[in-house]
Amino acid sequence: MAEEITVRTTAELDSARTLAEGRRMHAISSAVRYALLAGVGFLMLYPLIWLIGASFKTNSEIFANPGFIPSEPTLNGYIDGWRTSTPYTFATFFWNTFLIILPKTIGTAISCAAVAYGFARFEFPGKRILFATLIATLLLPNVVTRIPQYLLFRDLGWLDSFLPLWVPSAFAGDAFFVFMLIQFLRAIPRDMEEAARVDGANTLQTLIYIVVPMLAPALISVCLFQFIWTMNDFLGPLIYLSSVDKYPISLALKLSIDTTEAFQWNRILAMSVLALVPALTVFFLAQKYFIEGISTGGVKG
């Protein structure tokens, strides 16, 4: 009897000891993780932080001071960079970027919502094959279709206009977005839509008044991604736009590298900061849509 009690106590002591040890291990492991995460995070983000500081530095300081804070802060980079060496200012280039993004994003949202609705809620002849082409397009490198697309737009007389940048997106050309919306729609129960149909709504009314509001979070993700990707797009404008007065920011930045006199580094850095501001602002205001968007689009794929 007594023996039994001793045995039990030892076992309890043992388990208490392993528990405490476990806790200590956990604390150490957490500390290591935090240190690692913070270190890697700092290494990754410091270039961006440095960029902001450097854009306020004098040209002689940029390659001399690895720190963030400028010793003699100046706005010259911003003032001279904004003016550019062309007859246009960066205001023109920002406006052009906006003119490319707005119709493209609206076209994407409308066409992708309709197409995703068609795929997720209807049966029709050829659906399986069409859905397979959607996945295939997702994997198809653009390089293969780019040259004939260029020839097509040339024959249509669309070169040096925004049309080649707008139109393919208005035909649900970005398979990734259609796919993301289909995944999202599949997860939404159809009860509301069926109720609306019973009440006499047709499918278009159901799409506009019932499906689109439920799809809103995913549609916002689509618009945000399209905004940022278009903002970053360089090759499209490079191929299709030839007059400087139509240049978006990405082309204008490349142009200022090529044309700015040597040693005027702060102009280029200052304009790079401005070029990053819209994307960064949108990302920080709406980051949950980005994370959710990429997780639905990706994981269920």
Binding site: Y117, G118, K127, A172, E193, L207
Partner: peptide, 28 residues
């Protein structure tokens, strides 16, 4: 949605089909 024509869905995916042909399949 039972009473609908089996081609109704095609109307919604029509933009995709057109885009697929014009901007992807033919150029390919």
């Amino acid at each position: 949605m039972g009473g609908d024509s089996k081609y109704l869905g095609l109307a919604y995916v029509a933009p995709y089909i057109a885009g697929l042909l014009i901007f992807t399949a033919v150029p390919f």
